[in-house]
Computed example of a mutant assay.
Amino acid sequence: MNNKNRILIVEDEDYIRKFIKINLERENFEVIEASSGEEALEKIRKINLDVAVLDVMLPGIDGFQVCKTLREKDDKTGIIMLTARGQDIDKINGLKSGADDYLVKPFNPLELILRIKAILRRMEKTKDISEIINYGIFKLDGYSKKIFKNNSEIEMTPTEYSIMELFINNPGKAFSRDDILNNVWGYDFVGDAKIVDVNIRRIRTKIEDDPAAPVYIETVWGVGYRFKKI
């Protein structure tokens, strides 16, 4: 039985893709390669993944579309976008498309490995929690890693689920962006704290009746966010 975590690398530059593959295989990951968005979508249809590493700039179908399609197929797969230096809009668009994290090129392969492992830890952490937590109209099922509102399931990415888990376990507590990064991402995040804001906006579109006037996830001005205490 193959117990290796399966990682998809989507990168059109052969030398970059091969370099990433070599480093990931040294960490005992099973690596699947794709050199285009079209090839990636074909492989996504056929195999299950743990994490996908997607270059934004691909010929034909770009990384954003691959990300959206993968999210539609499986909201549990971890997704890391590779963006160009200085292209902040790519980071935001990648997160809006459903990515969990991003990494700016050029990057150290060790940093990519650390981020992949951080996503896998979040996934494993939630698997280890089997209890069901009821909080008002929300229910968190730690065994299936699902969130329910009024008994209807809300589709969540691994990162979104971890943020909701943090909030529901600490209602009324104000968390700074750094607090959320440390608790959810699980490592010293090097990048823009907007990654927290984008994930909060995504969650609000899923759990709030009116995301423009949020009731459950409150903004604490000058601090960060808190989950409404019922």
Results as ranks from 00 to 15, higher is better:
residue 5 N to Y: 15
residue 8 L to A: 15
residue 11 E to R: 08
residue 12 D to W: 07
residue 12 D to E: 10
residue 12 D to V: 00
residue 13 E to K: 06
residue 15 Y to K: 14
residue 17 R to V: 02
residue 18 K to P: 01
residue 18 K to W: 14
residue 18 K to A: 12
residue 23 N to D: 11
residue 25 E to D: 07
residue 26 R to L: 13
residue 29 F to T: 08
residue 30 E to A: 10
residue 31 V to N: 12
residue 31 V to E: 09
residue 37 G to W: 06
residue 39 E to G: 00
residue 39 E to T: 12
residue 40 A to I: 05
residue 41 L to T: 04
residue 42 E to P: 01
residue 42 E to T: 12
residue 44 I to D: 08
residue 45 R to N: 14
residue 45 R to H: 08
residue 45 R to Y: 05
residue 47 I to H: 11
residue 48 N to W: 01
residue 48 N to C: 11
residue 49 L to S: 13
residue 53 V to K: 13
residue 55 D to H: 09
residue 61 I to K: 13
residue 63 G to P: 04
residue 63 G to Q: 09
residue 64 F to Y: 15
residue 65 Q to P: 00
residue 65 Q to M: 10
residue 68 K to F: 06
residue 71 R to I: 06
residue 72 E to T: 08
residue 77 T to M: 09
residue 77 T to F: 01
residue 77 T to V: 15
residue 78 G to Y: 03
residue 79 I to E: 04
residue 80 I to V: 09
residue 82 L to S: 07
residue 83 T to M: 11
residue 84 A to M: 05
residue 85 R to V: 00
residue 86 G to F: 05
residue 86 G to T: 13
residue 88 D to R: 13
residue 90 D to F: 08
residue 91 K to Q: 14
residue 91 K to H: 05
residue 92 I to F: 04
residue 93 N to C: 00
residue 93 N to S: 04
residue 101 D to R: 03
residue 101 D to L: 04
residue 109 P to Q: 10
residue 110 L to D: 15
residue 111 E to R: 10
residue 113 I to T: 13
residue 115 R to L: 07
residue 118 A to D: 05
residue 120 L to G: 02
residue 121 R to Y: 06
residue 121 R to S: 07
residue 122 R to T: 10
residue 122 R to F: 00
residue 124 E to A: 11
residue 125 K to R: 14
residue 128 D to I: 02
residue 129 I to H: 08
residue 129 I to G: 00
residue 130 S to C: 02
residue 130 S to N: 12
residue 130 S to R: 12
residue 131 E to S: 10
residue 133 I to W: 05
residue 133 I to C: 07
residue 134 N to Q: 08
residue 135 Y to G: 01
residue 135 Y to K: 04
residue 136 G to Y: 02
residue 136 G to F: 03
residue 137 I to A: 09
residue 143 Y to V: 05
residue 143 Y to F: 06
residue 144 S to T: 13
residue 145 K to P: 00
residue 146 K to H: 04
residue 146 K to C: 04
residue 147 I to T: 05
residue 151 N to G: 00
residue 154 I to G: 08
residue 155 E to I: 15
residue 157 T to W: 03
residue 158 P to W: 01
residue 161 Y to Q: 09
residue 163 I to K: 10
residue 165 E to L: 11
residue 166 L to M: 14
residue 167 F to W: 12
residue 167 F to A: 13
residue 171 P to I: 07
residue 173 K to W: 02
residue 174 A to N: 13
residue 175 F to M: 06
residue 176 S to L: 06
residue 176 S to D: 08
residue 177 R to Q: 11
residue 180 I to K: 03
residue 181 L to H: 00
residue 183 N to D: 04
residue 184 V to F: 08
residue 184 V to G: 02
residue 186 G to Q: 01
residue 189 F to V: 08
residue 193 A to D: 03
residue 193 A to E: 02
residue 193 A to G: 00
residue 194 K to F: 01
residue 196 V to Q: 03
residue 198 V to D: 02
residue 199 N to K: 11
residue 200 I to Y: 04
residue 201 R to S: 14
residue 203 I to V: 03
residue 208 E to W: 02
residue 208 E to L: 09
residue 211 P to D: 12
residue 216 Y to S: 03
residue 217 I to Q: 11
residue 219 T to I: 13
residue 219 T to P: 00
residue 219 T to H: 07
residue 223 V to R: 14
residue 223 V to S: 15
residue 226 R to F: 04
residue 227 F to Y: 14
residue 230 I to F: 05
